Amino acid sequence: MSADLPRFDIVTAGELLAEFVAERPGQRFDVPGRFQGPFPSGAPAIFASQAARMGARVAYAGCVGSDGFGDLILDRLSADGIDTAAVGRDAEYPTGTAFVRYRDDGDRDFIFNLTHSAAARLDVDDAGLERLADCRYLHVMGSSLSSPAAIALIDRLATRVRARGGRISFDPNIRAELMADPATRAAVLTRIDDCNVFLPSEADLAWLSHGEPEAETVARLLDERRMSLVVLKRAARGSEAFTSGHAPRRVAAYPVDEHDPTGAGDCFGGALMAALAAGESLERALQLASAAGAHAVTRVGPMEGCSDRATLDALIASHGGAR
């Protein structure tokens, strides 16, 4: 590796968990039912898997238990080529878990065990932080800002990445239950202030609105904050990218048969940031991201739909190329 290149293209940190997925729509949590799993999961882990499969050099900071679920997660991260030197193993607390069910209307409900699991006990020493800070991008997920340990680690890491000339991307993933915690709310607002690339959903952007139209909210963020790129995720309606002084770039979604929507936004972000880190144009990065989000929903399991560039190129070609 050239001395002029950073060690990693992308570093991310946060929750690692084993996920169980209800087998049929309408299945409830308060009666016996069948669940598929365990699947390796966690929003930043899905993001990292997608970015690594795109060829990005990715490192992860997190914590799992000294149990079979921890083995499952570490095996998947390693198989995807992700550097796991900063993933700890807690001898006292178990690996985090999540159970997900699907309502008849397609909405999802989750039961998480994160607060009292290894996922909430991540820590990295100074030497580890210095190693991780040698990157092009630090990617932060809003879901990872739910424990004091994670908030503190990401704060320390962001400061070091910024000092070394790296950039920060942030997917806020704002949820009402998370925003009820003052520490999490403050941490989300800090990352919004500090990021260079902002990846909100329509609901995230509405949360930041002062009652003005979407375009005015985006213009205000670009004018008042450090961010230079806002990519608005519109789910089945594609995505839209905003930069100061330029017309928005719009990319349509790719129609596919949906089997599991979990992880689609994380795959979108992973493909986008991997493409940008590789020097791809914004238009090409958006196209790959849209294809990654579409492919993700065709597989059951949060990380099972992560895809490599050849798969994405084939999906794009099957729909007539650029959209």
Rank of each mutant, 00 (worst) to 15 (best):
L5S: 15
F20E: 14
V21P: 01
Q27K: 03
R28V: 10
F29Q: 11
D30F: 07
A51L: 11
G55Q: 07
A61V: 06
S66N: 06
D67T: 09
D71I: 06
D75P: 00
I82N: 02
A91Q: 14
E92Q: 14
P94I: 01
Y102H: 12
D104V: 15
R108C: 03
F110I: 08
F112Q: 05
H116E: 15
S117I: 14
L138Y: 08
M141T: 07
A149G: 03
I151R: 15
D155L: 01
D155Q: 06
R156S: 08
V161P: 00
S169D: 09
F170C: 02
D171T: 14
D171S: 12
P172H: 14
N173A: 05
A180W: 06
R191E: 13
L199S: 11
L199Q: 07
D204R: 08
S209R: 12
H210S: 14
V218N: 09
V218Q: 05
V218M: 11
D223A: 15
V231A: 08
L232C: 04
A235P: 08
S244A: 13
T262I: 13
G263I: 05
G263E: 02
G263L: 06
C267F: 06
L272E: 11
A275C: 08
L276F: 00
G279E: 14
S281N: 09
E283S: 14
L286R: 12
A289I: 04
A292F: 00
M303D: 08
E304T: 12
A310Q: 15
L312A: 02
A314G: 10
G320C: 03
G321C: 01
A322L: 14
